[in-house]
Every structure is written in C-alpha cells, then in structure tokens.
C-alpha cells in the first residue's frame, strides 16, 4: 500500500492505496465521486476524462499513485455555487447529450481545448474530441455546443 494525497474538486484526500488502483477507481470506489464513469478498458472512449494538474487525462490510464500530490478536477467540480460553466450551459442548450454517459468526458476534453485554443474552428473541435466517443449524438450537436461556448463571451465566464 502507498500513501497518497490527492486534491479533488478542491478537497484534499489522503488515502492508503494499492499501487495498481486506477485513478478512476480511486475517485469512484474510494472517494464516492461517481460523476466520472468508466466506458472502456483500452483508453479509447474518454468517458473517464478528468483534469489532472491543468491538463486533460484519461483517469482509467493513470494510477492513483501517479496523481499523488496533484489536483484533480472532475465534472462534479465544474460548477460553482450551482452556477454552470459556459460549456455546461451550451451542452444543455444545443442538445449535446442524450444518454449522458460520455458527457463528463466530453465536457472535460472540450474544456481542455478551450483553455488552449479559445476560438477553435469546427474542425479543431472535432480533432480535440477524437479521443472521446459518443454513441448517441453523432457528435454534431457536441461540436455546435463547444463552438457556441467558445463564441459566447457571456456564457464563458
């Protein structure tokens, strides 16, 4: 067992974990933060995407021990005082989700894109989301939502 300290959505958690514990299982099974789901076992689907020290990662392909001392932001830490982020609003308004299982990962991947490229083209949005699979939407409304969030100063806050 290895002792780790990980800050998740603003709260620091110290735990003894097996080295093989995946970050996503640490979040889900140990911390009860089940907003981040698991969709595959090959890091293809991206449903488990979180922010690790400022960049998007697939939390199924990171060990919890590798996140020791780091800060994690999950979909559950996006809104502040119940106020949604511009991306969350845009996903709602553009019908960018159906079953919602890929949504946490999509939001985190899109957020990462907009941090690095605040005014992406549709093509850049599609490439930025290539590691996040959705089976419901055909992606068109997700792309629209990300572009809307990027272009709407008011929504972006």
């Amino acid at each position: 067992m290895t002792r780790i300290s990980v800050k998740v959505d603003g709260t620091t958690y110290e735990d003894e974990v097996e080295p093989r514990l995946l970050l996503v299982h640490h979040l889900r099974d140990r911390l009860g933060l089940t907003g981040t789901p698991v969709g595959c076992d090959t890091s293809n689907c991206g449903a488990c995407t979180v922010d690790l020290d400022g960049v998007s990662v697939k939390s199924c392909s990171v060990l919890a021990v590798q996140a020791d001392g780091c800060a994690v932001t999950t979909v559950q830490g996006l809104s502040t005082d119940g106020e949604w982020t511009g991306l969350q609003k845009a996903f709602h308004e553009r019908h960018a989700l159906q079953c919602g299982y890929c949504t946490p990962g999509m939001l985190m991947a899109a957020r990462d894109l907009l941090k690095e490229n605040p005014r992406p083209t549709a093509d850049e949005v599609r490439h930025a989301l290539e590691g996040n699979l959705c089976r419901c939407t055909g992606y068109q409304n997700i792309v629209r939502a990300v572009l809307a969030a990027a272009s709407d100063e008011e929504v972006r806050t």
Binding site: G46, L52, D112, L113, G131
Partner: peptide, 9 residues
C-alpha cells in the same frame, strides 16, 4: 499520436 488526453501523459 492518439488524442489530446493521451498526449498529455
């Protein structure tokens, strides 16, 4: 190579 999240790690 892969996708942005994988390229971060």
């Amino acid at each position: 190579v892969a996708d942005p999240a994988v390229r971060h790690r």
